[in-house]
Design a protein around this nucleic acid. Structure first.
Length: 462
RNA sequence: GGCGGCGUACCCAAGUGGUUAAGGGAGAGGUCUGCAAAACCUCGAUGCAGCGGUUCGAAUCCGCUCGCCGCCUCCA
């Protein structure tokens, strides 16, 4: 069964064939660690995680590289703004290095909460300054650079097919219409190396053949991916917003230096919408995994929610939809738990599931197969084993889930016992009154053949 | 202004030319229960923003209209 993936470069779904049969090499653009990640950012990492798991499900070994951008990402892409790291540091009254460490750890916690597998290799931009300088020298030697008063720039007019990934119509771009072009020769030119301001000592700066300064944003990905994956690898992915600038420029740099378009497949996750607009850090509502936890949600409910939509479609976040996901996930967990020990997986179902995930990661359809399995009258042990196979891709931690043993306060237990006495005496009115008192205290009584079960009442969320 | 995309039931969302328009949640009815809850069963869009067109056949292709969003500014 062939794995088919959408390639932004070709604007088409293509059969996936690894360049090297022994290992699939993928690079995913990581975070700029100057602030927390919001759940919109994290949707893209969920998509990349699914991609990786689907590759592994297909039997490939995956070398997954992710960068940490801890320098050089300017506030404005006109290459004129302040470095986000320096800005974040000043705002927090800490050093840029401390800020980077802090938000890197927070990001890794987010990944863990969403059961996103960590990359095989993490790489920080600041750990690879020599590699970046070397690549800029390479680009310079091939004649693609020029110098301005504030840095070394890439001359995009030297590349005949610059912007192909984004289908950029460079002649139609209105130079300087919204952004001051500065000393740039072409509106699409971008900085490879920025000089430190002459009157100012930056926290992050390095010596280079061109002067003291720091690398531009795009060069780190080209340089580090070349180091860890080679100059032409299988898949490069990121958010859809990276298509027109960041990935376009990565390709330009690599084409100039190595003569390849960097990756065989370019894949992009689409935005999460919140109140009909893309979730943005600038807008007030900035939801994080911690926000969800504070509201009483398991972060994996958000993961399940993401699986309900195709990665190449915008997804509207609503609390009602997250509730739906949380409920569905909980049902899946309890049902699977009740199935007991896994036996042998059902191959027909596994193949149907695989058919969906291999169709450009059609997770909504894959979930439909999941629910069909749940309702099927196969034996519980077969269903359990089959579902656990699915979970290698779904990543919902279904195998390790256990019903929560809530700690019930003694006074609540006393009320429950009292109610049991009333019930055995068939004093229904008293029993119902006691149930109500327990509910007022925030607990629900569920009568089962084995006696009453007490749970923490579901929170009202609105 | 230019370019790209979207509009499917109460909510989220598959489906992109051909059997009865996936799935989840909510809701309604039912089974069970002293009552509830949970669970299970059943139901749910004769229609896919609107209007035209192409076709034996369209949610799916084309045109127009309306509404929304993204990119061209930092951005997952």
């Amino acid at each position: 069964m062939t794995l088919r993936l959408f390639d932004t470069y070709a604007r088409a779904v293509r059969d996936f064939e690894p360049l090297d049969p022994s290992e699939v090499r993928m690079y995913a653009c990581g975070p700029t660690v100057y602030d927390y990640a919001h759940i919109g950012n994290l949707r893209t990492y969920v998509f990349e995680d699914i991609l990786r798991r689907v590759l592994e499900f297909n039997g490939y070994q995956v070398r997954h590289v992710m960068n940490i951008t801890d320098v050089g990402h300017l506030v404005s892409d006109a290459d004129t703004g302040e470095d986000k790291m320096e800005l974040g540091a000043r705002r927090a009254g800490k050093s840029a290095w401390e800020i980077a460490d802090y938000y890197t750890q927070e990001f890794r916690q987010d990944l863990n909460r969403l059961n996103i597998l960590e990359p095989t290799i993490w790489c920080k931009a600041t750990d690879h300054i020599p590699e970046q300088i070397e690549m800029i020298r390479c680009i310079e030697a091939k004649g693609f650079t020029y110098r301005t008063s504030d840095g070394i720039y890439f001359d995009t007019s030297h590349l005949a097919d610059y912007g192909h990934l984004a289908r950029l119509d460079t002649s139609g771009l209105r130079a300087g219409a919204r952004v001051d072009k500065g000393e740039k020769r072409n509106p699409t030119d971008f900085a490879l190396w920025k000089f430190s301001p002459p009157d100012q000592k930056r926290q992050m700066e390095w010596d280079s053949p061109w002067g003291i300064g720091f690398p531009g944003w795009h060069i780190e990905c080209s340089a580090m991916s070349a180091k860890y994956l080679g100059t032409f690898f299988d898949i490069h992915c990121g958010g859809e917003d990276h298509v027109p600038v960041h990935h376009t420029n990565e390709i330009a740099q690599t084409e100039a230096c190595h003569g390849t378009r960097l990756a065989n497949f370019w894949m992009h996750g689409h935005f999460l919408l919140f109140e009909q607009a893309k979730m943005a850090k600038s807008a007030g509502d900035f939801l994080r995994t911690q926000t969800l936890i504070d509201r009483g949600y398991d972060p994996l409910a958000y993961r399940y929610f993401c699986l309900g939509a195709h990665y190449r479609a915008k997804l509207s976040f609503t609390w009602e939809a997250l509730d739906a996901a949380a409920t569905a996930l909980q049902r899946l967990r309890t049902t699977a738990h009740d199935w007991g020990q896994p036996g042998k997986a059902n191959l027909t179902y596994v193949n149907r599931f695989k058919g969906q995930i291999n169709k450009d990661l059609n997770m909504p359809r894959a979930l439909a197969v999941v629910w069909e399995l749940v309702k099927d009258d196969l034996s519980p042990s077969i269903k359990k084993a089959t579902l656990l196979q699915f979970d290698r891709v779904l990543g919902l931690r279904l195998a390790e889930w256990q019903p929560e043993e809530a700690v019930i306060p003694r006074e609540i237990m006393a009320l429950v016992e009292e109610r049991e006495k009333a019930r055995s005496a068939k004093q229904w009115k008293d029993a119902d009154e006691l149930r109500e008192r327990v509910r007022q205290a925030g607990y629900e009584i569920e009568d089962t053949p084995k006696g009453p079960k007490i749970k923490v009442a579901k929170q009202e969320r609105f």
